[in-house]
Design a protein around this nucleic acid. Structure first.
Lengths: 120, 120
DNA sequence: CAGCATCCAAGAAGATACTG
DNA sequence: CAGTATCTTCTTGGATGCTG
């Protein structure tokens, strides 16, 4: 979410902590699509429309370091690398469901609000 | 959550939509503290430690445009302005509770992960 | 196919000073 | 007290081209 607070400052609350993990332009979408099933790099890139290699890799690496995503390299040629959620990752995905539903439920209101933001 | 996707691109899913509202360095914290009770500007600023006037006002304004926060100016001298969540704002705050709990539950893991991010 | 490296643009955030 | 305004810095993200 937009960028959030510096990684060195202490957390103010649990929400703050959680948001440091899911914040990042493409992370929620990565979570969303990987929650459905494991995907190869190329597949995932096609799901997350508009993302560049640089961004996708960067965010995947952070999620991997955070223990959310598991990367499996099959060492084949041509390369085959599969990304999936860890059990810990699934707990995060679960925690995001209400927010996901909230967004789905209020999509039109949100859309209008964002337009207002620009004109305002 | 870190900054998220451009405000003009269509939402990919509900989560995407929701994150456009809560993304912003201080928004989750603002939500968090206002969910407890309404607060004057100065009070809120003291709660959200480290925030500058510029940032606090900016994020409050966006939340106001988004219909999450209600601003009441009592037109007194010295000024008294109170911020509180709208009913819509409370539905969002509710949707954030699981994420908040997730963060609280895994604070230590997250903290370690963030350190790893820096060193890696 | 699955990435990495480099350069550059845009936006977010901080510091500082000032106002009704 | 509750903001504004301006300037600068820092961080993100995008485009492009290359590699095993």
């Amino acid at each position: 979410m937009s960028t959030v607070r510096s990684s060195t400052t202490p957390f103010i609350c649990g929400l703050d902590a959680a948001l440091r993990v899911v914040s990042g332009k493409w992370k929620p979408l990565i979570l969303f699509f990987l929650a459905k099933d494991p995907k190869r790099y190329g597949e995932l890139k096609r799901c997350v429309r508009g993302v560049s290699d640089k961004m996708l890799i960067q965010q995947l690496k952070e999620l991997e370091v955070d223990g959310i995503v598991v990367r499996t390299d099959y060492k084949e040629i041509p390369p085959r690398v599969v990304y999936e959620l860890s059990p810990f990752g699934f707990t995060l995905a679960d925690a995001l469901i209400p927010l996901c539903e909230w967004g789905t439920e209020h999509t039109d209101i949100i859309e209008k609000a964002l337009v207002r933001r620009v004109t305002a």
